[in-house]
Design a protein around this nucleic acid. Structure first.
Lengths: 241, 241
DNA sequence: CGACGGATTGAAGCACCTCAACGGGAGTGG
DNA sequence: CCACTCCCGTTGAGGTGCTTCAATCCGTCG
């Protein structure tokens, strides 16, 4: 019954629809479009694939395209002149890349793992959005959500300790990569360097803090890029300071 | 001629219009509405005044209203359980308060200096926006801009040194409080504590760094809450690392 | 005048960084 | 199959930039 309700809330599409079978349709902005409009939309957005490490857009590039991530993981980052790097966020499947009214991308987007995207020419995308208020609405909701997330990250970077940052990060992973479930195994493809650049820490500190959480039996490491939450309560307590 | 062009780009309003003489109309989202729509809009948004230190909205409050700041200065902040505070941003005249699709405000908004706002019931505001695509567009632009600013602040908090943070902050003040002009005096009403909580530093560090910039002849302190940029080039160099 | 709050200055401590060595899994080549 | 290398992650020891604690200064207000 619950599942039926979920499905019911989505516009139905046909088996021959180009978006039929898309795993992230309901998550992505596409989810706000009904079948015919979605078909027209998708006609402008062919797939584009990137291997881990490849760059999707460079900071400073003209923002000629916008994207929807269908699978994989991207990082949004910025480099200071001397090489210091800050990752402003990760994009998960269903996330939208290209929230801006500026001419240029403000951040570099790179594939952390091999990723697939739907790529839309910005011009056509804008025109299409102008004709579809429901899409405009959805875009605003996405922007508002991203803004809240970025501001939450400001609290982490400005005021939390290394331990609190790592705990917050692991909980974020748990909520984004998974459908809850307390003791499930959580995979994350990003390196310790990526984690450090996201949390404003050095890789050595990331490593030490993760080890400490493992030693304290808050988490269990099931691999270098996967873990299990053992004591969610204590982890949440830690994360909030 | 230049002025005429600027005025021309704005929808004209009449002398008896409730928004006639509003100093921030062109800056605020209101700037996207033509006279009649703006009149209808303003009918739902009476003025509300707050003294320095008063709270406009509390984190966790139901988001029953949205606001446009017409004068003064607000801070958006969040408190950790043990009292640590992070300021996510400042709102200047013309800025919009209430970018969210959530039911509750994620941040507390307080007046740094005595401030005036136009207050709109959220429900009516949403309805009005739904009827005015140009306003929806403008809201999206505002959200995208705020998102870019927040992400830029992530770089500052995650990777910049205390000196670089202060330099960046002073330049931000210069660009937001003023119409450029190199050696103008810049006033800022926020306390050292506010600055520290915005930059992820303690007030002692803020004080020391400001003193250092003064000693190094990069800036000149003209009062406890005002300064002048002496060497903008070096200040910008510092700010970028 | 004294008291108060915000800002500055000084001295000592510590959380995280830096530098350096080591470990372990994946790929390669014999 | 083992030997080798490379890359990434872990661990250790020492350094440092910012914090913490504390005293002083200064403008405002009663």
């Amino acid at each position: 019954m619950l599942m039926a309700a979920t499905v019911q809330s989505l516009p139905m599409i046909e088996q021959d629809h180009p978006c039929f079978g898309c795993a992230v349709r309901e998550l992505a902005i596409c989810g706000s479009l009904e079948s015919a409009a979605l078909r027209e939309f998708k006609a402008n957005g062919p797939a584009a694939d990137y291997e881990a490490g490849e760059t999707v857009v460079y900071e400073g590039d003209r923002a000629a395209n916008v994207y929807t991530l269908t699978s994989g993981l991207l990082r949004l980052s910025k480099l200071l002149p001397d090489g210091r790097r800050q990752i402003a966020g990760f994009l998960f499947p269903g996330d939208f890349l290209g929230i801006t009214m500026e001419e240029e991308h403000a951040f570099t987007a790179e594939a952390v793992a091999s990723s697939s995207l739907c790529r839309f020419p910005r011009r056509q995308f804008d025109d299409f959005v102008a004709d579809h208020p429901e899409l405009e609405r959805r875009l605003y909701a996405v922007a508002a959500h991203e803004l809240a997330a970025a501001r939450q990250q400001l609290v982490l970077l400005g005021r939390k300790t290394a331990t609190e940052r790592i705990a917050s990060f692991l909980l974020m992973l748990a909520s984004r990569c998974h459908s809850m479930g307390s003791s499930e195994e959580i995979d994350f493809p990003m390196s310790r360097a990526d984690i450090g650049d996201y949390l404003g820490l050095r890789i050595e500190t990331v490593s030490r803090e993760i080890t400490a959480l493992k030693t304290g039996r808050l988490i269990q490491l099931t691999g270098r890029h996967s873990f299990r939450i053992v004591d969610r309560d204590r982890l949440e307590q830690l994360a909030e300071g």
